[in-house]
Structures are given as C-alpha cells and as structure tokens.
Design a protein around this nucleic acid. Structure first.
Lengths: 150, 150
DNA sequence: AGTATAATAAGATTGATTCTCATTTTCGTC
DNA sequence: GACGAAAATGAGAATCAATCTTATTATACT
C-alpha cells in the first residue's frame, strides 16, 4: 500500500466523517495531525503533549471516541492497561507492532507482502479450526530496543 | 509440550514460589485452580466468580500481583482495557489467542510446531531489522465465534 | 507453645476514562 | 449577514478497575 500524504489523509478523514454525519472540527483535526506525526500508537496523555495549545482532557477523550466510532482511529491497550490510539489501517496501511519491554515504546512494523500473506493463511487456518469467521489479526513482537540494550 | 496434570502444576507453582521465598497459601492456590479450570485468560471479576467461597477483591488482586511477579501467571489487557490473567506459558505451554469480536470470549490456541517455527523466524527477522533483541511475541486472531455468528 | 515474619481483609485512595450539562460554535436558511 | 436548530466544546462531577494502608490473622521456625 502506497502511503497517503498528510493532506490526502485529512481529506479521507473528512469524507469518512461526512458519511457518518459528523463534523471535522479543529479539535478532531488536531488529533489526526498529532497521530500522523507520531509513528505509532499514543496514549491520551501523550496526545495532549503532541497537540499544539492547551486541550481540555475531556474534549480530547470525546474527540478520540468520535474518531474511534467512525473508524478513523483504532484503540488498544498497552501493558499497563492504558488506552493507546493510532490512525486506522485503511489510512496508514496494515501493520504490526514492535514493543520494547524496557521503555514501553511502540513502533509500527509493516511485513513484506509475502510474509503478510503467509501470516494471513495461518490465521485463517486457526480460525477455521475453531469455528470462527476470521476478521483480522494482531501480531506484537516483544523485545529490547537498541537504546535500552545499554 | 506435553501438558501437566493439575497436581503437577500446583507442584511446579509451589517450587517456583518457594524459590521466590513466597508462601503458597490457600488464596493463591485458589487462583491457580480457577485459572486451571478456565481455558483462557480471565479478569479479576471473573475469577471472583470462579473461586469457591467469597474472596475479598483486594486480597484477590494481591494474590494476582504476587503470582504475576513470581512468573506463575501472566497479565494482559482486553479490548475494554480490563486486566486478564492466565497461567504462564512455562506451565501450560506457549500459545496464542482467538478472540470473538462480538462476545469478547478468548480461547487459547496452540500452533503446530511447524507453524510456530515459521512465526518465530518471522518475528526474529522483524526484530533484527529494527535493532531489537526479540524476547517474545503475541498473536491474536480476531473473528466471530460460532455461537455469535447467529 | 512462643515469637517473628508473611499474608489477609476492609476500606480509603488513586488515576484513567466517561458522563453531565450549561455554553459556544457551526451549518443551512431567510 | 443575522436566525434558529443541531452539534460540539469545556469544566467539573462521577465511575470503576486497581492499588495502597493498616490493623488483624495465619504461618513457619525454634
């Protein structure tokens, strides 16, 4: 998947929100911009720092909820149970995560087409064997990053 | 990995806790028994229901913390951010999770040796390419279970 | 049995997240 | 370019899983 420019992404988001009859306001745009700059999932607290100017935390959480509900961003929880948000895969491409055991940093990782295909087959097989209709998969690689490795 | 009997698991846990100079008390044993019956990760609230008799929630959390710290159980967070606990892999074998998108149920899944080897190679390659020393990996398959598929 | 140490129980506390509601902004219309 | 309806925001209250505190109880060792 060729990556979209920042401008194209905002355009895609605007259209998606329009379909959901939701306005693409300044606050919501600020969240998308912040997540665009970050190259991995970020917590609400981290996003507050990434966004220029003061953002009320309650408003930020509502922006995140709206964007999540309309499929613009995805939400998952890190090892400490804190929610982390990132742009949805239809905007930035399917990818996985490399997590540092020490500092907790999370980076996006895209597999090669061949690797992703193999993983996809594997996952389908697993779902079938248990009677599930597979809708997706998540792979997290855990390790110690170069900086933490002393 | 051949699976251990319930009795053998309690024995292993006892030894592991002894090494950590921690007692294997009734409350801690009850948690292990409950997780042994459950065939997948369970939340603190669910474990309260699985354990026979009333268990103070604060005590349960401390038992879980002690067992987690000594490596007897593992902890992760589900899509709603609540913590789920399960017996550690050295007790029940390395495995992955099949998660139902609808009801949230989580089942353990073990891959074949061949599949697991291939996955292991893949994650090693990913870690190397990013300068990480890989320590593990997590694969979650998402889908809709037979019951929820109507 | 007696003592020192660890574990438990009950409730208070914390902290991320959500809810409430009054105020403000936006959009389509006149 | 103001008007009214609907949507969004902001400030603080409320929620709830999880942790902490401390007094009490149980356990291991002598």
């Amino acid at each position: 998947m060729e990556s979209l420019t920042s401008h194209e992404i905002h355009q895609q988001v605007r259209e998606r929100l329009a379909d959901a009859e939701v306005r693409y306001t300044t606050g919501r745009r600020a969240v998308v911009t912040a997540l665009l700059r970050a190259r991995g999932p970020r917590s609400a607290g981290e996003i507050v720092d990434l966004v220029v100017g003061a953002v009320p935390i309650s408003s930020l959480y509502r922006s995140l909820a709206v964007l999540d509900e309309s499929g613009v961003i995805g939400k998952h929880h890190d090892v400490d149970g804190i929610a982390r948000f990132e742009l949805a895969e239809w905007l930035v491409g399917h990818h996985h995560h490399m997590v540092c055991d020490r500092c907790g940093n999370v980076e996006d990782v895209a597999l090669s087409g061949h690797e992703e295909d193999a993983l996809h087959e594997l996952v389908d097989r697993v779902g079938d064997s248990l009677g599930y209709t597979v809708s997706g998969h998540v792979l997290e690689v855990e390790g110690v990053c170069a900086t933490c490795a002393v």
